[in-house]
């Protein structure tokens, strides 16, 4: 890797320092009195219990016990490749949560693309249980 690529990799890493080092499951977080996750930069932050309960309520009926294994926070992937301010949600369960919050039904498989207003609505509903991830293609 040349020096320019190293600088760029460092920039991307620094933009994603707030992402959790390891995502905890919904079950684990719900069992904690004060649910917290540790981010890549070593600091930790809290997830509101009410938001976890909202997520549990949304997916509990459809996914049953499987819902407990859902890893949080939910990642909102931002990348210039999807167009300005568009975001991608990956994972069937995560798509279900987003659709329930946005109140719409889409024929999605494992991922969906949402736009600025939807991202705002999603963040308003789940400010601590969602996180932005900044991605870029290497090609």
């Amino acid at each position: 890797m040349d020096s320019e690529s190293r600088v760029f990799a460092k920039l991307v890493r620094s933009l994603n320092d707030h992402l959790p080092a390891e995502r905890k499951t919904l079950g684990e977080l719900l069992r904690e009195e004060k649910p917290r996750v540790v981010s890549r930069d070593g600091s930790s932050y809290r997830i509101r219990k009410e938001e976890l309960e909202t997520i549990e309520r949304i997916i509990g009926s459809k996914w049953g016990k499987e819902a407990e294994r859902l890893r949080l926070p939910l990642l909102i992937e931002m990348s210039p490749d999807y167009g300005r301010s568009a975001a991608r949600i990956r994972g069937r369960v995560y798509c279900d949560i987003v659709q329930a919050i946005l109140g719409e039904e889409r024929k999605t498989t494992d991922e969906m693309v949402i736009f600025r207003t939807d991202v705002r609505r999603l963040r308003r509903e789940l400010p601590s249980a969602t996180q932005y991830a900044f991605l870029i293609s290497t090609s």
Binding site: S5, L11, S85, Y132
Partner: peptide, 27 residues
């Protein structure tokens, strides 16, 4: 040439972050 491509990619990514931050800020 390589540096320009990387700088432009970094610029786009930072712009995404700025837009997201502004959106959060307005909220």
């Amino acid at each position: 040439g390589r540096r320009i491509v990387l700088a432009e990619k970094g610029h786009k990514l930072l712009k995404e972050k700025r837009d997201a931050l502004v959106s959060e800020f307005l909220d």
